[in-house]
Amino acid sequence: MKILVVDDSKAMRMIVVRTIAKTDQGSGAEVLEAANGAEALELVRDQQPDLVLSDWNMPEMTGIELLEALNREGLRPAFGFVTSESTPEMYERAMASGARFLVTKPFTPESLGKALAGG
């Protein structure tokens, strides 16, 4: 399994990567990193990850803009948001664009694992 972690904070990317490794679904996965949506879009094109875990609020290209860009290009990796914001409006927009889940920061290995498992 190949997972792309997208967050403009290097510290948060490291936390997400460590937490992924503690989950049943992410243990042993190959993990790629990007610092914004634009970098992530390039990596999805080149590396074709199975799953994208993305922050929402980032410079250059936000997480939802990334998801919408992937949709326009017909690229359909599984997509989940890991973000400090989780209003109903954001959740609805994310789901309407094809996201599978939205995990709120701060998160625990249990909450991220549950989301990865589709729970």
């Binding site: 510290a11 973000t83 400090s84 914001e85 709120t104 920061k105």
Partner: peptide, 14 residues
């Protein structure tokens, strides 16, 4: 520290 503010502020915004 910026990410800590982002998490705290994001949860306040929620």
């Amino acid at each position: 520290v910026g990410e800590l503010a982002n998490m705290t502020g994001g949860n306040v915004k929620n």
